[in-house]
C-alpha cells in the first residue's frame, strides 16, 4: 500500500494551502492510500474545533469538515505539540480524533511513512 504524508504549515482560510492539502488527503484515502496529515507551524490553527459555518460567514469551505472527513475515512491527522504550545492552543480546543505528537515523533513518522511527502 502506498503511503503519503501531507504537511500543512499555513493557517486555514487566509490562504488556500490548508484546504488544498486536506483535499489531496480526501482524494487519496478513497483510493486506498495510507494517508497521514501533519499540522505544523501556523498549520495547527486548522486543528481547532468550533469553526462556525465558514461557507456562510466567509464564503469558504469548512476545513474542520475536511478534517472530520479525513478521520472518518481512516486517515490520521496529527498536530505538532510544540507548535500548539507556542500558540496557546490547548488539547480541548482540538477537533476530536486529532493526535498530538512531539516534533521528534512527527519526524519519525515523516521518515517512516513518507514514501511521498507533500508540503503545503
Amino acid at each position: 500500500m502506498k503511503k503519503i504524508v501531507i504537511e500543512i504549515s499555513h493557517p486555514p482560510y487566509g490562504h488556500e494551502n490548508a484546504y488544498s492539502g486536506f483535499f489531496v488527503a480526501l482524494g487519496s484515502l478513497p483510493k486506498g492510500v495510507d494517508t497521514i496529515v501533519i499540522l505544523t507551524g501556523e498549520g495547527v490553527y486548522a486543528a481547532r474545533r468550533g469553526q462556525v459555518d465558514p461557507p456562510k460567514n466567509i464564503n469558504l469551505p469548512s476545513t474542520e469538515e475536511q478534517v472530520n472527513d479525513i478521520i472518518n475515512l481512516g486517515g490520521r491527522v496529527i498536530a505538532d505539540k510544540q507548535a500548539l504550545l507556542v500558540r496557546g492552543i490547548h488539547d480541548e480546543e482540538l477537533i476530536e480524533g486529532i493526535e498530538v505528537l512531539n516534533p521528534n515523533e512527527i519526524q519519525d513518522i515523516i521518515l517512516n511513512h513518507g514514501e511521498h511527502i507533500l508540503t503545503f
Binding site: 502506498k2 487519496s28 507533500l118
Partner: peptide, 21 residues
C-alpha cells in the same frame, strides 16, 4: 482532471516533489 487524477500520478511516481506552497 479531478484530484483523483493527481492521486493516480502519486501512485505511479517513484519520487514526488512539491513546489510553491
Amino acid at each position: 482532471c479531478t484530484i483523483y487524477g493527481f492521486v493516480d500520478m502519486i501512485l505511479k511516481a517513484d519520487k514526488l516533489l512539491t513546489f510553491g506552497s
